[in-house]
Amino acid sequence: MILKITIIGLLAGVIGTGFGGIISVIFKRNVDKYLDFFMGLSGGIMLAVVTFDLMSESMDQMGVLYTVIFTFVGVLLTMYIKTRLDVSKDMKSGYLIFISILLHNLPEGLAIGSSFMSAESLGMTLAIIIGLHNIPEGLAMALGLVGSKMKISKIILFTVIAGIPMGIGSFLGAYFGGIFSSLIGVFLATAAGTMMYVVLEEIFPKSRSLYCIIGFLVGTVIVNCI
């Protein structure tokens, strides 16, 4: 049963973010021409996930105060990672998006694993929803990396790797049950902080235009629809 749950969680993560990476291939040739729009799209997707999903769920788990505290911890953690990240300036935002999605896929996996132990139908429903929800996140990450001129094959590989922690989280959630379910709020808030920092510090300052705003609104709508 635990192996089955782990595989389902892994597939939900890998297929979701990986499919988002594949979609980015469609935009690759036009990414320079419409870069402001795509940066706004990435930022809109990520901030919508932070506000409507991660922080909201974390508040339900452990209240507003602790959510704010651990969100700020996530911001500080990302700032520290940025100072230690030894890559070119153009590629930093893409790598930071990759790291933030890695971090927030773990608690989503924990949620899947814990739900399966409660009721199999609930776990399966959650795995499907999170898998779909990961598509725009994979797209946001891929677009950030496309803008840094990374090879498309490597971008798709990165989006697939970003989904792996969901399998790990599903295993831990199923194996340890209540122990890790009590920490899901902490993981979600920390992940929210990492994503918030990336958007406000790395994405939006580089794209100040009407097209960025349009992209932001489109990204927000995409997350709400999925």
Rank of each mutant, 00 (worst) to 15 (best):
T125C: 15
M59L: 09
G193M: 08
F19L: 15
G177I: 01
K28R: 15
L145Y: 01
I69C: 10
I135G: 00
L47S: 15
L139D: 00
N105F: 09
G144A: 08
E137M: 01
I214C: 00
M124L: 12
I26Y: 12
S93K: 08
I226Y: 00
Y66H: 03
I99C: 02
S58K: 11
A162V: 02
I222R: 04
V14Y: 03
F176N: 04
Y80E: 12
L122M: 08
G44W: 03
V198K: 15
V73E: 11
Y197L: 10
L210Q: 15
K154P: 11
G123K: 07
M141W: 05
M141L: 15
G18Y: 01
E57C: 00
S100Y: 09
S100E: 09
L47K: 13
L106H: 00
P136F: 05
K33H: 09
L217Q: 06
M39Q: 01
K92I: 05
I5D: 04
S182T: 06
V25T: 13
M124Q: 08
M91I: 14
G21K: 12
I156E: 07
K82S: 15
T83H: 10
G20A: 00
M59N: 13
L188H: 07
L77F: 14
F171V: 04
F37A: 05
D86G: 11
M79Y: 15
P165N: 13
K89I: 11
K82W: 13
K82F: 12
F72E: 14
M150Q: 08
V199S: 09
Y80Q: 10
M39C: 06
T17E: 00
Y66C: 01
K151Q: 14
K89H: 14
I168C: 05
L145A: 06
K149E: 14
G16S: 12
Q61T: 15
I179P: 08
H133W: 02
K92F: 15
A191Q: 06
S42R: 07
H133R: 05
L96M: 10
S181R: 12
V73Q: 04
G9L: 10
I130F: 13
N30E: 10
Q61C: 03
V160I: 09
I99K: 01
I156R: 06
A127W: 02
S148H: 10
I23R: 01
F27D: 03
M91K: 06
G94D: 13
P205K: 01
N30M: 07
A12Y: 03
L85A: 12
I101A: 02
V146Q: 11
L172T: 07
F116D: 08
F70W: 09
L110M: 12
L106D: 11
V31A: 15
S24G: 04
F158Y: 03
G18M: 06
I97G: 03
A162D: 02
S114Q: 00
F98Q: 10
S100C: 06
K89V: 13
